[in-house]
């Protein structure tokens, strides 16, 4: 059996469970919408302006930083899985040295971001 079939089972069970819960509340819950009830909630005050505004640029900064550092995991994980196998056929200093160079470059990048104030939230 394909090992992903059970994953599909688990996700199906999860979908059924959540549909049943929400479905039951559709069945049992009342439905009497009024104008005030369906208004935007702003702590009881009339809503001010619109929600669809521009965000602060710092959120984009975090997203870009995440992409940069998350890509490193793509390279790190295969290396981590194969690490002991690599050690059988190559000298330890080589396998470790290669990763040290990779992480070293990444570390310099991190230091550059730090110095340029990329981690400055306020």
């Amino acid at each position: 059996m394909n090992p992903y079939v059970p994953v599909a089972f688990a996700i199906l069970i999860a979908i059924v469970f959540s549909l049943v819960f929400v479905g039951l509340s559709y069945y049992f819950g009342p439905r009497r919408p009024t104008k005030t009830k369906t208004a935007v909630y702003e702590c009881g005050m009339p809503p001010v302006g619109t929600t669809r505004q521009r965000f602060s640029v710092k959120f984009y900064m975090v997203a870009v930083l995440f992409l940069l550092f998350d890509l490193e995991a793509v390279f790190l994980y295969p290396w981590a899985t194969q690490y002991s196998t690599l050690l059988d056929s190559f000298p330890g200093t080589f396998v470790l040295g290669e990763m040290a160079v990779f992480l070293g470059v990444l570390f310099i990048g991190w230091f550059y971001c730090l110095k340029r104030g990329a981690f400055q939230w306020d």
Partner: peptide
């Protein structure tokens, strides 16, 4: 809820006692 329950598929609860 589906995303949080989906993770359960790979958690081993005992020797061989894992969904996937």
């Amino acid at each position: 809820v589906v995303a949080s329950l989906g993770t359960l598929a790979v958690i081993p609860w005992g020797d061989g006692l894992v969904i996937a």
